[in-house]
Design a protein around this nucleic acid. Structure first.
Lengths: 333, 333
DNA sequence: GGCTACCGTGCATACGTATGAATGAGAAGG
DNA sequence: CCTTCTCATTCATACGTATGCACGGTAGCC
């Protein structure tokens, strides 16, 4: 095992550099030679060593993807499209989880084993973006923002929050609650901001007893709903930081025997496929999750390949409220 | 950018090899020198190049993970633990999707950019395992089997199928259906085999009209249930190839207004976290998904690191029926 | 027929790290 | 004071591919 271009060269009766050029399609190599080299390579089952190539070209053709937690039902919908888009553009995907401490994390990312990084997570106050920038590793923000300048793709989260608020107000809700994402994430913060602003414009305030914050996880919604319902008056509608949280809320409602949407309106964000399952039929805010991921991959690849070298680009997608089963006017009561 | 060990050597006033040895903890280097080298490395923010190291040691410290489709809610529960276990053992994870055609797939896997591969998918009739074996890339079967000898970790799928059959029979079901996985997967085949065998032992046959096969996806269950219920007599219980399929069935039941478990018993396989959500409370077959993934990672790492060189090892986990809400005796009718 | 131009190939070397072998400086011993 | 031995370090080189440059051969041109 371990066939090298030298072995191929020997068999084909040419030099090692000629093998390299022939297989890479260098036009300076004669057709006849290309044919010989191809045959020899096939005969030996030669596959160029990626390590050798990386060392020589200083390009790894690998892109890192950093997420918080793969098992969270939200992330696969980013990771899948990212993988496909990267593969299509000739890059392989390395997957990293944020759980490991940030310091060691930066180290392992800048060892030149990846050409760039998709930052699909990480909190606003993280030092990672600055660190990456300092170390010269190109990256793109995906579904988040950051102060360190870099390409970015995200939804207009404020607008999405506003849309939900307007819908709830129009439906006649006055006692409204929110289970928002973490304060130190742009998605969490902006969705809440837009939501609050639009409510305020309608003269409605969010009572602290109707508000919770937590990670974008099923358990957050599951745990928060009972607390919100214990308030007096209880909210008649709850806006959730994202669909995963909202589905946690729906689960809690089932456990508590709370009728949705009869007694409680629930709205999510993202419109992941699960949201449209008959078990949930979650009213939510739709945006092009798949397109967002692929766009991010595209921006990053253009950046690492040198195809684009200008100022950081920022792509903002427009969200759209999609009404399903889980929202309705509050019961007369 | 692009600090090398030579730069560190120059600053520390030593030779390049000494830098390499000092940072790698070679005992032959004096404490004093180690200190100097460390300081120089820190001052320059030096991070060893993975490409250079890989080329020299012929070890990439990367492990590939091949799955069918990341977006399928089952896979994240393998990918997550795999990532964690690999990281803990000093390996990074490259994620591959099966969608790309197998031929090109093998090529990109054997370019020495990964030390080994976790085969978490791929059908029985795939040529990939044989190809990997021929090319000398170590791999481990995870949640599947294969004829090409290699380390493997899987559940006792036949036993699991038997357990479900016995439960359904004990519950009094006589008209039983199955929505099994693909014939050309060991999980699909063995679960079906065990199930059929135990039913046969109880003198019960599966009518062809009560049986469907399909990929382990939500849509499979969703699409198959209406067909099964159209049979006369309709089945009073359905065993599904895995939880994802079962949840598709539950979704279809909701759409059709079919009461579960009142009119229909549904049983899955795997006990993914979603199965225990209040929205589903799916009766299923539990096994240690996380442990299975971590074990596979362990076996593979021991193999690629040379820690173990013996015969292929096979770890088989014992499944256990876990009764929740979705199974019950058939209605008198 | 000699000069230039061009084309295809080989030569030399770079990429960054790791490691066996050689070297040098001391220390220990006679 | 010379030898022997040990220890820390340097030297030389390997890993596999890519690429600037030199080179040899052929064709074209006057």
């Amino acid at each position: 095992m371990g066939i090298t271009s030298r072995d191929v060269a020997r068999l084909a009766g040419v030099s090692q550099p000629t093998v390299s050029r022939a297989l890479r399609g260098d036009p300076r190599v004669s057709e006849e030679t290309v044919r010989k080299v191809r045959m020899a390579a096939d005969a030996l089952n030669y596959v160029p060593s990626e390590a050798g190539r990386s060392l020589s070209t200083r390009i790894s053709h690998r892109i890192g993807v950093l997420v918080t937690d793969v098992a969270n039902p939200f992330y696969p919908h980013l990771v899948g499209p990212l993988h496909d888009e990267l593969e299509q553009r000739g890059y392989r995907m390395m997957l990293f989880t944020e759980r490991s401490e940030a310091a060691a994390s930066a180290e392992r990312l800048v060892d030149r084993s990846i050409d760039g990084l998709v930052l699909a997570t990480s909190t606003l106050d993280s030092a990672l973006p600055a660190e990456l920038s300092r170390r010269g590793l190109p990256f793109v923000y995906l579904n988040r923002e950051g102060t360190t300048p870099a390409d970015a793709v995200a939804v207009d989260n404020r607008l999405g929050g506003e849309q939900v608020a307007r819908q709830l107000v129009a439906d006649g809700h006055r006692h409204i609650g929110g289970i928002f994402g973490p304060d130190n994430t742009s998605t969490g913060r902006d969705r809440e901001l837009g939501f609050r602003q639009a409510l305020a414009d309608a003269g409605i305030a969010l009572r602290p007893a109707h508000v919770r914050h937590g990670p974008f996880e099923f358990e957050t919604g599951l745990g928060a709903l009972p607390e919100l319902l214990a308030a007096d008056p209880a909210p008649t509608a709850v806006f959730c930081g994202n669909d995963v949280v909202a589905i946690g809320v729906l689960d809690a409602a089932r456990r508590l025997g709370v009728d949705v949407p009869g007694r409680l309106t629930v709205v999510g964000f993202d419109d992941i496929p699960m949201a449209s399952w008959a078990s949930f039929e979650l009213s939510t805010v739709r945006h092009d999750l798949r397109g967002m991921a692929r766009t991010a991959a595209g921006l990053l690849v253009e950046r690492v390949s040198g195809e684009y070298e200008g100022e950081p680009r920022r792509v903002v997608l427009t969200p759209e409220f999609v009404g399903r089963r889980t929202h309705r006017a509050p019961s007369a009561n």
